[in-house]
């Protein structure tokens, strides 16, 4: 009995080790950097740029290979299950054992995929945290009182200037159009071109304000939204781990039940005499010799 259980367990362990996914141990990293380029990208485009960076990483390749291996095993499990239903006798037992081995390998692969997915989400979360930190630093530097005072004074000066510019030309030079300097004419021409370009930039689809739940948000709010989404996915991964743990427990219970079944059958077929009740032998003793 003990030997049968050991054999079965060893068989499961060896089979699982032999089928361990090929991607384990390979380089499967993704270290996204909060680069200047990423900081300057339009917020709505940021998500796609991060995704593209991830797709070029060894981690994405490892995840892809694991997903492919999982799909193969998924199909194999279905075929095995169908074969068990159709088989009888020793073939059925062999297939049942194989099915257990395959389920264990499948769970191992699922675990690997979960680990890779967790690594991706943690890297993504770290990236968004660093981008938010940079945005925060920018806000803090904008909070320099001297710079803020200068900006406010400049804005006030520009407002006064806008209100008086036409009056200055008329008052000092008579007809403003006739007296326009080369700088004035060139500035006006360039300003018109700039206005058109700025309008085109603002209307560009890539530059559109990012939206969360159909509402336009600024860059820090969008980054916080992306970070919260990554956190939520991490929490769901933890829950999926629990599902996998229960699956593994079921596989172990199935293996124990099968080992018991095999042991019982071996005992029945070996013709070992059943242990008799002590009282059943009383006849030998109560009758005088």
């Amino acid at each position: 009995m003990r030997c049968a259980v050991l054999m079965l367990t060893l068989g499961l362990v060896c089979a699982a080790a032999a089928r361990a996914d090929d991607t384990a141990g390979a380089d499967s990293t993704w270290r996204p950097a909060a680069s200047e380029r990423l900081v300057r990208l339009p917020a709505a485009y940021l998500e796609r740029a991060v995704e593209r960076d991830f797709q070029d990483s060894p981690l994405a390749r490892a995840l892809e290979e694991t997903a492919r291996a999982l799909a193969d095993r998924d199909a194999g499990l279905g075929q095995l299950q169908a074969a068990i239903d159709a088989a009888t006798g020793d073939d059925r037992e062999a297939l049942r054992q194989r099915f257990l081995e395959e389920k264990q390998a499948y769970l191992r692969l699922m675990g690997r995929r979960q680990d890779l997915e967790r690594e991706r989400l943690k890297a993504e979360l770290g990236l968004y945290a660093r981008l938010l930190e940079r945005a925060g630093r920018q806000v803090a530097s904008n909070g320099d009182p001297a710079a803020a005072r200068l900006a406010a004074n400049r804005l006030q000066a520009q407002r006064r200037f806008e209100g008086a510019a036409a009056k200055v030309d008329t008052a000092l030079f008579g007809d403003p159009a006739a007296a326009e300097s080369r700088y004035g004419a060139e500035y006006r021409r360039h300003a018109a071109a700039l206005d058109r370009l700025v309008a085109a930039i603002n209307a560009h689809p890539v530059n559109r304000e990012p939206e969360v739940d159909g509402r336009g948000v600024d860059r820090p709010a969008f980054l916080r939204h992306l970070a919260a989404r990554a956190e939520a996915e991490l929490a769901l991964l933890d829950q999926q781990d629990l599902v996998l743990a229960y699956m593994a427990k079921l596989v172990a219970l199935d293996a124990m039940a099968m080992a018991d079944e095999v042991a019982e059958r071996e005992a029945a077929s070996s013709g070992r005499p059943a242990t008799r009740d002590v009282s059943a032998a009383i006849g030998f003793f109560v009758t005088p010799n």
């Binding site: 001297a146 005072r149 200068l150 004074n153 000066a157 006064r160 200037f161 510019a165 009056k167 200055v168």
Partner: peptide, 23 residues
């Protein structure tokens, strides 16, 4: 935020003499 720019924009009337005088 050097002192020169600070002083210049703090006093519009002196820095932007022509515009301020017409205004």
């Amino acid at each position: 935020s050097d002192g020169v720019a600070q002083r210049a924009f703090a006093d519009y009337d002196l820095t932007f003499l022509a515009h301020a005088s017409v205004e």
